[in-house]
Amino acid sequence: MIIQAEGIEKDFTREGLKDISFRIVPGSFTLITGESGSGKTTLLNIAGGMLHPDRGRVFVDGRDLYRDYTRKERIRLLGSDLGYMMQGVSLIPSLTVKDNITYPLVLTGREYDNEKLEEILNQLGIYEVRDSYPGRISGGEYRRALLAGVLLSEPKILFCDEPTSNLDSDSAAVVTDMLYSYVNPDRSVVVATHDTAFDRADAHVELRRIPVNGIGINAD
């Protein structure tokens, strides 16, 4: 699966995205970096089908994500070919970690492999807390549980927004390793971060803060 972004622009009150183009190909690890407020999350949202760009287009295997897909189809795509570990989302407090991970699949009538689930939980080091409630696990475990929920559907392109933020170094290392190891010839990963632990990438989009009415391109 290939994602091609062309001339993406998005205006916000203070900052915006200007003429961003990039391409995500299978087997690649792409980093989106930049200072706070430079639009990393916005760009990820646009590439992940969660936010219309003001200008520009995003193609998924040649189909325009915002013109050829309905809103419902875009969301469905997120649970199948695309995976998105967003910031600011939360688990359902009344469900166990395991139920939180499997609940979306149950709701959408998708099967999941229990062995695969256990493997992911083990890899992320949260197998022991699978039956705990989100309120009773650490912040690091919480973030890893969110990642596990995205990984279970084995997306072809995985978007992660600040996957290591607020994690201790051990947890961050687990997540970083997991994301690097997720890449294979059919799968690619896009990470928006300012964590220097992500020191390897096949492609790098660096964003700079620019005023909305300014002139220039904010990506290198």
């Binding site: 969660m50 809103r71 419902k72 969301i75 469905r76 795509l77 997120l78 649970g79 199948s80 995976g83 998105y84 570990m85 967003m86 600011g88 989302v89 939360s90 688990l91 359902i92 407090p93 609940y103 979306p104 709701l107 959408t108 969110l146 929920g149 995205v150 559907s153």
Partner: peptide, 20 residues
């Protein structure tokens, strides 16, 4: 909204959310 948002981000469509 943050829990709903997470479900949307993993492919749970709005009609399913509304039904739940």
């Amino acid at each position: 909204r943050s829990a709903i948002g997470r479900l949307i981000s993993v492919g749970v469509t709005e009609d399913i959310m509304m039904r739940i």
